[in-house]
């Protein structure tokens, strides 16, 4: 356990260092942030002043060393656009994305997993076809189209829900459902595939021979074994979407991290990009760590490995 923790910490440091350095050099190749800050008609003196204010006149390597030094104390500097602490800005947007993703994930898992199991069990029946159809539909309808259709129905026509997000639980519903639909579709397909695989395994036959009810077999035995591969998927998607779903955040005016990051790319807002990459890096490594720990809980074969390590 301590070993795993050490490994993950090392991994974290490497991931952050690698990612940050990559972003550092990539954004500096991409162009001059001064013009993005000053806009189209600032005079040359102002542009020069901006560059010198930001320390962009120094050699890149000097900037890099300074950047690494600041990274050590987690100081990312001020956002070029917002003129306020970049990390604070990222952390301000982060909860919105996290909340949206977690709610969406709960909806997706809550619906997708049972639907996937049912789809597998009734593979050739009406239910199986329905699950297949829904999964394909969910994956092929673009996010923004679904989002706008939901807005038209629930906000414009029925007037039940607000058309854009950011305040209150009600405004969470539509974006969460839209995101969930997308995640759910993928999960349904995967759970279905995994379940089909499990269905042919010997322990299902054993359970049948022991006269267990179908429900017990499906939701106690099969599901538990399906959970193992599902965990890594859920972990991956959690990381991906907490980092932000730009499309959904745009359609629903959801003030999340994804939009901030894309804005920052366009505006060459280096500090926000660096802070964002840092947070996302930590997050992904952390989620992976949690998934690893959960693996040990659900998969005894891995627990044994951990003990021997």
């Amino acid at each position: 356990m301590a070993k795993l923790l050490r490994q993950r910490l090392l991994q974290l440091v490497l991931v952050i260092l690698g990612l940050s350095s990559l972003v550092f050099f990539l954004v500096r190749i991409s162009g001059d942030p001064a013009s993005a800050i000053a806009g189209a008609d600032a005079d040359p003196e102002t542009l020069a002043a901006i560059r010198s204010n930001l320390g962009l006149n120094e050699p890149v390597l000097v900037q890099y060393v300074r950047f690494l030094g600041d990274l050590l104390v987690l100081d990312f500097g001020d956002s070029y656009q917002y003129r306020s602490d970049a990390m604070a800005l990222v952390l301000d947007r982060f909860p919105a994305s996290a909340l949206l993703t977690i709610i969406a994930m709960l909806i997706a898992v809550g619906l997708g997993v049972p639907a996937g199991v049912l789809g597998a069990v009734h593979r050739d029946g009406l239910l199986g076809r329905a699950v297949n159809g829904l999964a394909i539909l969910g994956q092929s309808v673009p996010n923004f189209v679904l989002g706008l259709v939901l807005i038209m129905i629930f906000a414009v026509s029925l007037g039940w829900l607000p058309s854009f997000g950011g305040d209150g639980a009600m405004s969470l519903i539509l974006p969460a459902v839209t995101l969930a639909a997308f995640i759910c579709a993928r999960q349904m397909r995967l759970v279905q595939a995994y379940t089909l695989e499990e269905l042919s395994k010997g322990y299902v036959r054993t359970a049948n021979s022991l006269g267990y009810s179908t429900r017990r077999i499906r939701y106690r035995h099969i599901l538990r074994n399906v959970t193992v591969p599902m965990l890594s998927l859920v972990g991956l998607e959690l990381g991906q979407f907490i980092a932000g779903s730009v499309v959904i955040e745009s359609v629903f005016s959801w003030p999340g991290l994804g939009r901030l990051m894309v804005e920052s790319v366009t505006a060459r807002d280096y500090p926000v990009l660096q802070a964002g990459v840092f947070v996302i890096g930590v997050l992904v490594v952390l989620i992976n760590f949690i998934v690893d720990l959960l693996y040990q809980v659900v998969d005894p074969r891995l627990k044994a490995q951990l003990v021997t390590r």
Binding site: K201, G202, Y203, R205, T206, A207, N208, S209, L210, G211, Y212, S213, H221, R224, N225, V228, V298, D299, P300, R301
Partner: peptide, 22 residues
């Protein structure tokens, strides 16, 4: 299901896969 469970005990070829690994 009930009848078989009560009256037959069954053992299969591969005990590894016949037991639930979880």
């Amino acid at each position: 299901r009930r009848f078989c469970a009560e009256n037959y005990g069954m053992v299969f070829q591969d005990p590894m896969s016949s037991l639930d690994p979880s």
